[in-house]
Computed example of a mutant assay.
Amino acid sequence: MAAVTMHLGEIGQQLRAFRLESGMRADEIATRLGVSRAALYRYEKGEVIKLDTVQRLAELLKISPLTLLGVGFDYYNCPNRFFEKLTALESDVLQSLQICDPICYQVTSPAYDVILQEAHTSLPEQKENAAPAILTQANRRALYNQRKPSIISMLPEGLVVEFLRQGVGAHVPMSETLRQKARQVAVQEIRNIITLMDSVPMGLQFSVIPENMTVTPCIYMRKSEQVVVAINPFRSDCCPAYTSGVAMITASPEAVLTHQRMLESLWQTSLKGQDAMERLKTLVAQHGAV
């Protein structure tokens, strides 16, 4: 895995993104900073920027200087906002190492999305602002199929067992008929993973984390000039109306390095290859829907 570095180009991209999000015009920001608009554009293209200018920019944009430099912490208490950001990050990611679901969403079948949308439309209290998080993630699978970045997905055994017993959308209210269908889809998704493990596709690896190990759901993403870590309490099959939590995204070197070491250690101790396949087959036989 790559070492953590900071690049002026990445800082420039951060500056431009926050400027556009703020709704402030470039000439307005330049005037309040006491620099020319051309200078501001040069900063956004990766020219050296003074720390006192970073401080004043952060104050104008109402963010912390560390966040502007790309080493701060962004927090998300809404699953949809988090998955929007995650999709944007994955648009140019080179490698992803993840522990966050009993499956790897990027390689799920369309049936996974369909069952969640069906469950949502059956909710009597459905509202526009409670749209299923799966709709926000619609581009994640397409992005993966288009770019094929490297993915290492570690599946916690406890989550796999719950997934097989409860089905897709374990915490989303459903009728018993729909719940049974969700269990069947869950079984098929795990079987699909077993098939992928057996075929060993390029750049895609799976392992199974033993049930007696407690892990923090997180995603490590290596981009061309930056490494980012997301601490993620939100399952890909969650419904915002029934989900509470706070996700965090950071490129802080200390946070990235700490999670990198943890993930590398887990990968070494988790079940891989034939052992992982046999374990998943056993779990399907023991807990899968009939």
Rank of each mutant, 00 (worst) to 15 (best):
H120N: 00
V160M: 11
H287V: 06
S91F: 00
S96L: 10
N212Q: 11
T53E: 08
L66E: 14
S96F: 00
Q117D: 11
I193R: 05
F82L: 15
L15R: 02
V161G: 04
L69T: 03
M221S: 06
V227M: 01
T195Q: 12
R42Y: 10
T136R: 12
Q188D: 14
K281F: 12
V290G: 06
N232Q: 06
T216H: 05
S96V: 15
E157F: 06
K272L: 09
P79I: 04
F163H: 15
E21Q: 10
E44H: 04
L15A: 03
P79K: 02
T136F: 11
A142P: 03
S199I: 06
L89A: 10
G70Y: 01
G46N: 07
Q268G: 05
T31A: 14
I231R: 06
S199G: 01
F82A: 06
L69Y: 03
Y242M: 03
S236M: 14
V208W: 11
T53D: 07
Y41K: 03
V284T: 12
Q117N: 13
G12K: 06
V215A: 09
E44N: 04
Y112N: 10
Q137K: 12
K272S: 14
M154Q: 08
R279F: 10
R140K: 14
L164N: 03
L280H: 11
A131Q: 05
S109K: 12
P132R: 04
T250Q: 00
K148F: 02
L61P: 01
F234H: 09
R56Y: 02
Y105Q: 08
R16M: 00
S252C: 10
T5R: 12
Q137A: 13
A276G: 07
R183A: 01
T195V: 06
L20N: 07
S224R: 05
D113I: 13
K62Q: 13
